[in-house]
C-alpha cells in the first residue's frame, strides 16, 4: 500500500473499503502500540487504553501481558517436560520467558512452538555447564514431531522372508513418516527414563547414543541404535538400496552385522514398505 504524501491532508478513501487512509494508519498504530508492551514490561500502557476512571491502568493492561507470557511459557513446559524437570520450575519459566521474547511463535499451533529451543539452550551462556540439556530439548522436539506426525502402517518384521534372497541387495526401504534420529554424546536414554518415565529399547546407559524415535501405531517408541546401525538406517531412510547401504557402512565399521542391524530396525517397525528396485 502506498503512503499518502504528508502535504496532502485530505483523506483518501480506498476502493471498496470506504475508510480514510489516515484512519487506517492510526488504527494500525493502535495495534502496534498494544502489541509492543505485551512481551516487554518496560513498555508503558498504550495511550487510550484505560480503566474505569479513564486513565491508563497498568493492572488491567497487565492482565494481557501476563496472559501472553504465562500461556506461552506453559506451552513450552508442555512441549519440553524433561527440560522443565531437569532445570526446575522457576529456572525453566525464566529460561522459557527469555526464549519466548527472542523467538515468539509465528503461528497459532503451540504443539509446533519451540523448534529453536534446543539451539537456544546450546547458545545460552548460563547453561554452558549443562551441555546435555540441548540434546534433551532436541529429543523432546523430535518426540513431539513424531507424536503429531502422519499415521502410517509399518511392514511386518518378517517382510524380508517374502523377498527373493537374490534380489535383497536391491531392496529399498521406505520409512514411516513419523520417525526421527537423534544423536548425542550423552546418555539421553537414562535421562529420558528418569524424566519421562518411558524406557528406551535396546540400549546401554552410556554416552554416544543414537535414538530412533518412531510411531508405528499410536504410541511413540524410542530405540537406542549402535553407531553402525544408525549409519545404516540413515542411508536406508535416504533411499539407498540395502546393498549400497550395507557396503557403505561395512567400509567404515568393520564389525557391522547386517542381519542384526536389519532385525533391529524391522522390530522397531520403522519401515512402511520394502520394494525391490526394478
Amino acid at each position: 500500500m502506498s503512503q499518502a504524501p504528508d502535504s496532502t491532508k485530505e483523506k483518501i478513501a480506498l476502493k471498496g473499503f470506504g475508510v480514510p487512509l489516515q484512519d487506517l494508519q492510526s488504527n494500525m498504530q493502535g495495534f502496534d502500540m498494544f502489541s509492543d508492551g505485551l512481551m516487554n514490561p518496560a513498555v508503558p500502557v498504550p495511550d487510550g487504553v484505560v480503566g474505569r476512571d479513564g486513565h491508563p491502568s497498568e493492572k488491567r493492561y497487565g492482565v494481557y501481558r501476563n496472559n501472553v507470557m504465562a500461556s506461552l511459557i506453559d506451552a513450552m513446559a508442555a512441549n519440553f517436560p524433561a527440560v522443565h524437570d531437569l532445570v526446575g520450575r522457576d529456572y525453566f519459566r525464566a529460561l522459557a520467558a527469555e526464549f519466548v521474547r527472542k523467538h515468539p511463535p509465528e503461528q497459532p499451533v503451540l504443539s509446533e512452538f519451540g523448534g529453536k529451543f534446543s539451539e537456544f539452550i546450546g547458545a545460552f551462556p548460563p547453561l554452558a555447564d549443562y551441555p546435555y540439556l540441548k540434546d534433551v530439548a532436541a529429543l523432546e522436539w523430535a518426540w513431539l514431531r513424531v507424536y503429531h506426525g502422519p499415521n502410517a502402517t509399518p511392514v511386518a518384521p518378517d517382510v524380508l522372508s517374502k523377498i527373493d534372497p537374490a534380489k535383497l541387495g536391491d531392496a529399498v526401504f521406505t520409512p514411516i513418516p513419523a520417525h526421527r534420529l537423534i544423536y548425542s554424546r550423552f546418555p539421553l536414554s537414562e535421562i529420558w527414563k528418569q524424566n519421562r518415565s518411558e524406557d528406551v529399547e535396546g540400549i546401554t546407559p552410556e554416552a554416544d547414543q543414537v535414538i530412533l524415535i518412531c510411531r508405528p501405531d499410536m504410541d511413540v517408541t524410542l530405540t537406542g541404535l549402535a553407531q553402525d546401525v544408525a549409519a545404516f538406517a540413515d542411508l536406508l531412510f535416504f533411499g539407498k538400496t540395502l546393498g549400497e547401504a550395507a557396503e557403505a557402512v561395512s567400509s567404515s565399521y568393520k564389525f557391522f552385522d547386517l542381519s542384526q542391524a536389519l532385525g533391529c530396525l524391522l522390530s522397531a517397525r520403522v519401515f512402511a514398505s520394502v520394494d525391490v528396485k526394478a
Partner: peptide
C-alpha cells in the same frame, strides 16, 4: 508475525 496466544481486545470503530 507474532502470535500472542491470547484473545486481545480491539476498539470498536468504523475501521
Amino acid at each position: 508475525t507474532e502470535y500472542f496466544n491470547d484473545l486481545l481486545p480491539l476498539p470498536y470503530t468504523e475501521v
